[in-house]
Amino acid sequence: MHFFVVKKSALYLVGVLALLAIIGSFWMNFNSDATPAISQQKETIREIHLVTGEFKSSKEDGKEIEAYRWDPGTIFVEKGEKVRLKILGVNGKEHPFIIEGTDIKGIVKKGEETVVPLQFDKEGTYRLICMIHTQAENSGPMIAYIVVD
């Protein structure tokens, strides 16, 4: 038969370590600062800048022609991505717009910036349409494409 002799000081040490482990476990579970790092990150919202632009020219007979455009004419976003579309009115007094396939509408005025929050749940191509410049007869079409992947 074998006997083990354990000193009293060793038992105290084991007891203190066990107590520290229990306290540490409770502290990690209940301390609000112990939340995962992912939940502490700030949500990022990507900003995309557009401007209203105008092209003018003259035909051979001297008649002036013009066309309005969104620049850039195509933007790409990810499905579910939060985007802040910032549209600066440079040319034209105002451009009332809709984003086809959504309830989004607004007005871009010359010299002002219009901010449009976007987040698409479905993939596809959405058209940003100026309601004044819809056809060539009224200096259009003023359409930009939002491609959602």
Rank of each mutant, 00 (worst) to 15 (best):
F55I: 15
K56F: 02
S58R: 13
S58A: 13
K59Y: 08
E60S: 12
E60M: 08
D61I: 10
D61M: 09
K63T: 15
K63E: 15
E64A: 14
E64N: 10
E66K: 12
Y68P: 04
Y68L: 05
R69K: 02
W70M: 02
W70H: 04
D71S: 09
P72Q: 10
G73M: 09
G73L: 06
G73R: 13
T74Y: 00
T74L: 14
I75N: 08
I75M: 12
V77R: 10
V77D: 11
E78S: 14
K79T: 11
K79V: 13
G80Q: 04
G80P: 06
E81I: 09
E81M: 07
V83Q: 05
V83A: 10
L85D: 11
L85I: 10
L88S: 05
V90K: 11
V90A: 12
N91H: 10
N91K: 11
G92A: 12
G92R: 06
G92C: 02
G92H: 04
K93L: 13
K93H: 13
E94D: 15
E94W: 03
E94A: 07
H95Y: 04
P96Q: 11
F97K: 00
F97W: 04
I98R: 03
G101T: 05
G101W: 07
G101A: 08
T102M: 07
T102Y: 00
D103I: 01
D103Q: 08
D103M: 07
I104V: 15
I104F: 02
I107S: 12
I107A: 12
V108H: 03
K109T: 13
K109V: 14
K109D: 00
K110E: 14
G111M: 08
G111F: 03
E112W: 11
E113C: 02
E113F: 02
E113Y: 00
V115C: 07
V116L: 04
V116N: 01
V116H: 06
P117L: 09
P117G: 05
Q119I: 00
Q119G: 00
D121R: 00
K122Y: 05
E123N: 01
G124Q: 07
G124C: 08
